[in-house]
Amino acid sequence: MSNCFEAIVIGASSGGLEAFYKIFSKFHEDFSIPIFLVQHIKEGSDNYYVQHINRASSLDVLEAVDKIKINRGKAYVAPPGYHLLVEDKTSLSLSADPRVNFSRPSIDVLFDSAAHVYKDKVIGVLLTGANSDGALGIKKIHDLGGYTIVQNPETALSSEMPRSALAITKVDEVLELDQIASRLNQLDGGNNVK
């Protein structure tokens, strides 16, 4: 597999805020692959956590608005109450469609749309969580040739989400939370995988 990934999608539920904080604070300075992120969060919440992650990171982390342009070196977070989807390789879109897996934003919705647009050029990362959202999405990314990473359920704050994904997909890597940022740094830096 070559190194030319064009996007990273990351999803998490309970325990995710801490996990995201840890990962985002370790990205290298000139990290360039755009990142799209879903954290399950109560509808109507403000975006304090986006700012929190943004402050910790060398990346520009912002909440997505509809049809926002995708830029390198930025991370786009799904707003509470909206699904985030990859519209095409240049822009993201939102939808207020019904919840999927009781969640809006839903990780499956993002991952599915990302797999469709990017095929083998996307990295999917699924972290801690206490439900099974994201499992089908990881499978879709894997099936279309993308690269898949799941946090080790044994050590994740909540194990169900990574466990559900592993149950239906033979993912590329199962990693400890601490290893994920450095792995993504490597993948971004152009080191070959496999």
Partner: peptide, 9 residues
Amino acid sequence: YANASLRRR
């Protein structure tokens, strides 16, 4: 209509 959500529906 927006591609991604149309397709999904």
